[in-house]
Design a protein around this nucleic acid. Sequence first.
DNA 1: AGAGTGAATTTTGCATACCAAAACCTGTAT
DNA 2: ATACAGGTTTTGGTATGCAAAATTCACTCT
Lengths: 245, 245
Amino acid sequence: MSQPISPLPDRGPTGRRTAKGPLSGTASRRVERPAPLRQVVYEALAELIVNRTLEPGQHLVEADLAEYLGVSRQPVREALQRLQTEGWVDLKPAQGAFVHLPTEEEADQLLSVRSVLETHSAKLAAGLATPEDVKRLWELQNEGVEALAAEDIERLVAANASLHAFITELSGNTVLAELIGLVDRRVRWYYTPIARPRGRDAWYEHAQLIEAIAAKDVVVAEEIMTKHTERTRQAYHERTQAPPA
Amino acid sequence: MSQPISPLPDRGPTGRRTAKGPLSGTASRRVERPAPLRQVVYEALAELIVNRTLEPGQHLVEADLAEYLGVSRQPVREALQRLQTEGWVDLKPAQGAFVHLPTEEEADQLLSVRSVLETHSAKLAAGLATPEDVKRLWELQNEGVEALAAEDIERLVAANASLHAFITELSGNTVLAELIGLVDRRVRWYYTPIARPRGRDAWYEHAQLIEAIAAKDVVVAEEIMTKHTERTRQAYHERTQAPPA
DNA sequence: AGAGTGAATTTTGCATACCAAAACCTGTAT
DNA sequence: ATACAGGTTTTGGTATGCAAAATTCACTCT
């Protein structure tokens, strides 16, 4: 049986503790900490991939990326590896990183999983939402409806993301929220290029959903979210089968 | 609008292709490719964390790990970062890696998500399973029952994992399978130390589930898996509330 | 003694340089 | 054309250096 004895140099049982310091209640909560470079690189690359500056299948050469971004290879490598674990690139051994090539099948699987997760989060949210939360939901809903009226696609996509993200938060399940975050972002990547977001009916469904949440009707909220996400999935398939003229 | 013009040196549109080479039908299907070191390190550290050689909260110093494993800092860093994205360690900026401290709440959230995902996979599996698959399921079931009879905890845990993993595979949804893999592994980490696996009843539920899958009864399979995983969740809470004497 | 302070130490994060092995590409000879 | 033999590119890993941040330690002042 494995003994709980650390094979590493003993640094004391507690590790480090957070030091308090004599901060006499100043206003600023935290010193400006520049984000780790690898994080910045990660975000930059993710953005480049999502907006298709880097095309699916493209070979990403560490040295080139490093030069382009003005950093060394190290943070680039680290970013690429994180991008891999999250499905944005494929890292072939001894060959490097290639922007992931989404397949039809994979998109469907993602949408399927998304449906399940979002449905669960709607259910939980309906059980936990306070009147204030509901108020906020209606605000987000209005934002979406306005964007729809203005035919501002970008704003519409953002509003949709905000609304779903907020419901996710309301679920109170951090693990669930993180997973949805991952899945959603990839779904958007697959989905956005081929189609404008579903319009009027999607926001009608949102309204129904919010009403169910306000009424704390767990069952109906669940039902509506399932239908809502499944319709999105259908819409995806219809559009991929009929390529834009 | 963003133009699809690559900011990177042009390396031709195709990237690299796989070369065939004059392999005159030798037996070995693939050249022995030693796993990337970062991968090996990742697995080694994950193992050390799961079996609690590295205790939760412990500060992991790159240089120490590197020396202990006989590699340089680089692969260790890369492994640590992957461990972070998968929830095994927390990487505090400028402070390094600390083995993740599981909280009661987080465990519950994980079990909740796991329940949803596994349920979905059971549903899909029931719709797709062939008679051969069912045969294999019964084999795995028997393995578990035998381990139970022999009171071989380790074997029991392995059998349980195999059975669930196989159902996951049967779902035909790779994305789902990967997510479940992630979640399950963490669940096991949280769960194992405080309690022996649920015994007799869990395997009875498994048997029911397999029957439902064999009958291609999607609804019942779904139902049983939900109950099964929710019971596991309950069992977790009962055991955490009553610490072992 | 206890609290505060300032310097020494440790550790991370990143850069740079270097190298072997693998994969890829190209030109030549058949 | 095809096969082969180099030459080139790229990865994956090692080693080293160093600044900034965090921690720890030693010291001084009360």
